[in-house]
């Protein structure tokens, strides 16, 4: 009789452990999705900046032509981002387009010292820098959560539970040195 109770006890503990591992994997997968959604939300904040940028450059013809093409390309890259689907390739594309636009802005503005010195332009550049920092930080959070998730499905016995029940696949972290450079906060220690 005692043997049966011990067997039942072990079975109950096992079932509880499996449920806990299963739920932990789901939680970590959800955390990755949230972090991804956060990255995309930050990326889409650029849509708020673009009209300001267009306003600033509209009086400078030479400036306008080159920059507007880059703005259009960036807008289309931002539209390609899906909040519900982790797609690091598209994110990389949007970041590349942002990089190109900023590079073009920096080169062209040298020809317009009065524009470069204007308060509106300075504010705009600060806001862009701020946004790029937020995107960098959001990517860092996404990568941390992906690392947690990947560890959560690879270590034993989680790997066993995942193979039988969750069937989640390892997620690739996002690596883009330019985007990561955007986040400049370093502690003093």
């Amino acid at each position: 009789m005692t043997g049966i109770w011990i067997a039942i006890g072990i079975a109950v503990v096992l079932v509880i452990a499996i449920i806990a591992i299963y739920n932990a994997i789901i939680n970590r997968a959800n955390a990755v999705e949230r972090a991804w959604a956060n990255v995309i939300t930050q990326e889409r904040q650029k849509n708020k900046i673009i009209p300001h940028l267009e306003d600033v450059v509209k009086d400078y013809k030479e400036f306008e032509q080159g920059t507007l093409t880059k703005v259009t390309e960036l807008r289309s890259a931002l539209q390609g981002l899906d909040i519900g689907k982790v797609d690091t390739a598209k994110l990389e594309q949007a970041e590349a387009k942002t990089g190109e636009l900023l590079k073009s802005l920096n080169v062209t503005v040298e020809n317009y010292p009065e524009l470069k010195a204007s308060e509106t332009y300075q504010k705009l550049m600060r806001e862009i820098t701020d946004q790029q920092e937020n995107i960098g930080a959001a990517i860092r959070i996404f990568n941390q959560n992906v690392e947690d998730f990947n560890n959560g499905i690879e270590v034993f016995p989680n790997s066993l539970v995942n193979a039988m029940l969750n069937r989640k696949e390892k997620i690739k972290t996002f690596s883009d040195s330019q985007a990561e450079e955007g986040f400049e906060y370093k502690p003093n220690i």
Binding site: N38, Q42, D130, E133, N134, I135, G136, A137, A138, R140, I141, F183, Y185, P187
Partner: peptide, 12 residues
């Protein structure tokens, strides 16, 4: 709690 603020707290 912007991403930069969140990461700054992690560092802190």
């Amino acid at each position: 709690m912007k991403p930069t603020v969140v990461v700054a707290f992690e560092e802190l």
